[in-house]
Design a protein around this nucleic acid. Structure first.
Lengths: 203, 203
DNA sequence: ACTGAAAACGAACGTTCGTGCTATTTTACG
DNA sequence: CGTAAAATAGCACGAACGTTCGTTTTCAGT
């Protein structure tokens, strides 16, 4: 009972630490110090560093979903929801949901050339994310909001790229216009693929 | 004399190692083993790990410029050169110029929240790169190839985002269509901003 | 070929890493 | 309450980290 609570607070801190120092830079000793507990006490919760990393990814995913999808799913499906996801993503960066920028952007570039269970877990998360983006796009097509010819995978790729680019310009270059640029690019791109509502007949 | 040659071969290997393991994961012992030399012998060339990291960034920059700009600068300025940069970038990823994908994409996301001399050096490199992109865009505007209203900084942001996105989809997701998607997106975007050559009078 | 300098080496330093153990404390429950 | 179980602490380990130092090897210029 108590264990579960402790575990959660460990992971909460681990997610932020890893978003700054990286999943490999995330260290058991450092994490234990931060939480005022012993290395071995913390270690017992996970059994290995790799398990800690995997659990941290899982915890980060929950935080991500809460920040992006939970609010966006309140919007009506189709174009509004798709646009809400974009705005949620940028606002999630602005609000600093993770201490060191987007956890998954960092993890993606850290592990993209280091095969293993951690790499697999990151890839799985990112495939889910891209899949969810594509789904929202297909919904917008089905609702008649986007042109039927739109390639969902292509558009998802482009939107995701803009988010990564925003993270980069915002966090590393400290460009205060980064998020505005990304929002403008996403908006313009979506607008260009939008079905113009000349007549309200198509359903 | 000999020292400079050794130093260069160290950095050559360091660049590839760091593009896989990260600039922090780049380890003096590992690097020395790879090169069949002693830790202390290697260490003496740099005096500290941080200096090794900074020198590695510098070396990576040379390789990057050789792969991207040297060929692109042979194209006539304006639209052709801009498009050549885009294609060079994607081909540079395809050819595996760095062992672990784009060195600078990895470094950017690794150090974007870790202030210090290494972060500063990465930021400087990336500012140079974005600046060069903007310059190529402005040239295309000046040559009358792109609409005069084009916002160079905005377009540079978008192109760079596509490159990062390509790196991500290519390296982590192993999506074989990643580079094609990025090229298509870049091409379409540039085409949409292009001055249509209806009559060959302007210029 | 000789020699002074430059380069590389080998061993060791103190620290931190992840990971085992064995106690001890704390918690949950009958 | 008391007690079994769960959670945490303490300590030690071997390996790897960056770094220092004194020695030895290799090179370049005369």
């Amino acid at each position: 009972m108590k264990g579960e609570r402790t575990r959660q607070s460990i992971l909460d801190r681990a997610v932020d630490l890893a978003s700054v120092e990286g999943l490999e830079g995330l260290t058991i000793g450092r994490l234990a110090d931060d939480l005022g507990m012993s290395k071995s006490g913390l270690f017992a919760h996970f059994g290995s560093k790799e398990e800690l990393q995997l659990a941290t990814i899982e915890a980060a995913s929950h935080r991500f979903i809460n920040a992006i999808f939970t609010p966006a799913l309140r919007e009506p499906r189709g174009y509004p929801r798709l646009m809400a996801i974009c705005r949620s993503w940028l606002s999630y960066l602005r609000r600093g949901v993770f201490a060191g920028g987007c956890f998954f952007a960092a993890a993606s570039f850290e592990f993209d050339s280091r095969p293993g269970p951690v790499c697999d877990a990151v890839r799985r998360q990112m495939n889910d994310w891209i899949g969810a983006l594509e789904k929202a796009i297909r919904m917008a097509i089905d609702e008649g909001h986007l042109e039927p010819a739109v390639d969902a995978a292509q558009l998802a790729f482009e939107l995701n790229s803009l988010f990564f680019g925003a993270n980069f310009s915002h966090s590393l270059l400290k460009d205060r216009k980064a998020l505005d640029r990304a929002e403008r690019a996403a908006h313009d791109r979506l607008e260009s693929l939008r079905v113009k509502p000349r007549k309200r007949r198509a359903g």
